[in-house]
Design a protein around this nucleic acid. Sequence first.
DNA 1: CATGAATGAGAGTTCATTCAT
DNA 2: AATGAATGAACTCTCATTCAT
Lengths: 234, 234, 234, 234
Amino acid sequence: MASKAVQVETQRDKLERKEAAILHAARSVFVDNGFDGARMSEIAKTAGVGEGTIYSYYESKAELMLAVLQQFWDGLTLEARNVMAGVKAPEAIKRLDALATYHLEIVIRNADFINLSFALRRNNSEVSVSRDHLRQYVSVFDEIFRRGQDRGEFRPEFLLWHARDVFYGTLEYSARSIEVVADTKGNDRPQKPVIDNLIALFANHFGTSDQPSDMEKSSEQLNRIEAKLDQLLS
Amino acid sequence: MASKAVQVETQRDKLERKEAAILHAARSVFVDNGFDGARMSEIAKTAGVGEGTIYSYYESKAELMLAVLQQFWDGLTLEARNVMAGVKAPEAIKRLDALATYHLEIVIRNADFINLSFALRRNNSEVSVSRDHLRQYVSVFDEIFRRGQDRGEFRPEFLLWHARDVFYGTLEYSARSIEVVADTKGNDRPQKPVIDNLIALFANHFGTSDQPSDMEKSSEQLNRIEAKLDQLLS
Amino acid sequence: MASKAVQVETQRDKLERKEAAILHAARSVFVDNGFDGARMSEIAKTAGVGEGTIYSYYESKAELMLAVLQQFWDGLTLEARNVMAGVKAPEAIKRLDALATYHLEIVIRNADFINLSFALRRNNSEVSVSRDHLRQYVSVFDEIFRRGQDRGEFRPEFLLWHARDVFYGTLEYSARSIEVVADTKGNDRPQKPVIDNLIALFANHFGTSDQPSDMEKSSEQLNRIEAKLDQLLS
Amino acid sequence: MASKAVQVETQRDKLERKEAAILHAARSVFVDNGFDGARMSEIAKTAGVGEGTIYSYYESKAELMLAVLQQFWDGLTLEARNVMAGVKAPEAIKRLDALATYHLEIVIRNADFINLSFALRRNNSEVSVSRDHLRQYVSVFDEIFRRGQDRGEFRPEFLLWHARDVFYGTLEYSARSIEVVADTKGNDRPQKPVIDNLIALFANHFGTSDQPSDMEKSSEQLNRIEAKLDQLLS
DNA sequence: CATGAATGAGAGTTCATTCAT
DNA sequence: AATGAATGAACTCTCATTCAT
């Protein structure tokens, strides 16, 4: 009886291992060749299964691609949360530094795939990452930034989406530039300066600094004005 | 003789019109279906020519795609320079405002195409926008920023590429967000705030404090108000 | 277990039958239409398989043609050797008679194909019968002739290639003539006289005089007739 | 008026020159690429005319090929007759030597074309050299051989077609062998020995020699038999 | 459930032929 | 008469999907 249970378990495991192998192979082949360029036969060979077998796990090439995409974004989110859990520092700026480092690395390594994701969103109605998966990923940033505002590290007047656009936008554009430059010469543009500059920008622009910023100066002035009006009224 | 000249001109024009029609049709079909999804027969039908005709203008589907891409990026650069030529203000910050407005608009309208461009760079070695075309486009920003540094509007210690990453990165990420949001609900995120926030960021982060920013202009006004109150009080 | 063995055998057989069907169909369609004139779709239809199926047996049309050519020449050689094995007589002249009869028959029946072979050798570098296949075929003649020289039937001073040129050349040219004539009128030129003349030529020209040729045997008969007449007269 | 006549003549000449140029170009392109491999556009370019122009001289590609073939065979015949006219010796064997030399040379140089001729005869009912053109060419041999028989150089009992098969067959087969060998190594098999052997064969086998051949001995014997029967009858 | 041989619709591309100029 | 741009039918070959084993 025990042996049967074990065998059943093994059977289930086997299926899961096979499915994982297919997903893994698919990802690799899709990244190398794009959606249309990828051949089901190559995915099957890479996964070590028959071509027909894939179709007992996924209804079509498009559905397989979809599964790959979802797994990719889910993995990204999970990994990002793991990374953040490993950062003990409570300061938002330090946490953002860690997130930026992770994100830039990921974006550079998976540039092909990310491009593919967005290209598919447009051209292939069948295959498109759900908005939810993307949203979940960016929520990692959102939480840090909001907490930074709560902790008084970031100015409360800034809108979340603006900070998010600057953060992810800058990193992704940088990744592309690094990539393009890397194609031509040696790796001329290392990643560290990109992170440092971005973090400095966040500290300076979004941060509450001890040197009175224009806005702080203005509000001091407003305080004085209010005091003077009080004088006039009194 | 005049009539012959006219006829010759008409001949040449006809070819040019046909080539333009093919390019236009190709762009439309490529954007709608992606590179592999696009069918030459549909491009031909859309352009109102025979299938074979395309091949007397372009050697292959890949070359046609390339021509479309180059035309697109060249047009983008040209238009950007036109826009900038129309901006009379010499202040870098005002010029960046105009450029950002133009770029965001363009990126939103051509999101499909831009995604396609970058997707192709990776998967299809045959078809890829040359780095030169991209470089020419971003040079519009580069010139403004450098001139801003020369004029003392932007701090000289900032590296060009960092400012460029923030500028284009933020705009492109915003465009994507606007797009995604627009897909779901009505146009919730208009473009104006995106521009305003980015320009404020540039003024604040990259700017030298003695250049009166919008915010600083406000504080000048506050100064005047305070002065007048002082008069009243004295 | 037996049934399983049978089934496995059947599987293998099925593939072989399919491949043979394709090869057979291809030959027929190629002969009827030439290499360029032959359509893969017609070959597929004739073979009773799908178009794609052909491509899992042969990489391309050219490779299919090559396979057909090789099968043809190999079969020719094999059959020629079989025919020669059936000829018990040791005399080279009798063996050549059998070979010539076989060859002429074959060349007439497969004139289309042989022409195609040689036409392809020139125009299509991809598709050409290897020299080896042709050499193997003519080696059947070579062996007989050399053995004839060893046995003292043929004069040793004659070069092999010269005899070979006369043998195959005469037969092939005759075949073409027979063919051309047959096109116009009824079968005016039967094959037997061609063979007889060629064999007589070999006996006379290449032969050593002490070997009784057909003609000499006839003269023996004449001797006998003369003797009998002498009896009558005496 | 004279000038007009000249111009008219020039006009006619121009057409003829153009037609000759097309025919010449066509031959060259057909030989290099085969019938299907040849492109009308290349023929036009080679001839220095527009593509459409060809169609005002020849109705179709097939008809053009036909014209090329006929011109080729006619030229061959004409040249052969010229060569023979230059041979002053009256002996058939010497004339055959000259013809064989010319023919072998021609066949080697135009192997592609000759193969093409025969390949087309089978595959393309539209394009095929008329039997008459071939017959005219071989008639050059026929005349020499018949005259040889008349002159007592060749035995009268041999059938024309047999000698013809041996003559042309041997030469063509030799040409092919020379060609095949030349492909591999250097020109190992020069043409002279081929001719010499063939001519020796003709002298020996078809010739009337001073040593009484088997056949002559037989016919002497038949004479004696006849004489004895005459005795019986008298 | 797993397989991979078989399928055939559909792709990009070619090129003989036409016809407006 | 001469041109060559335009045509589109027809080609070879690919590959996602099916299904008998």
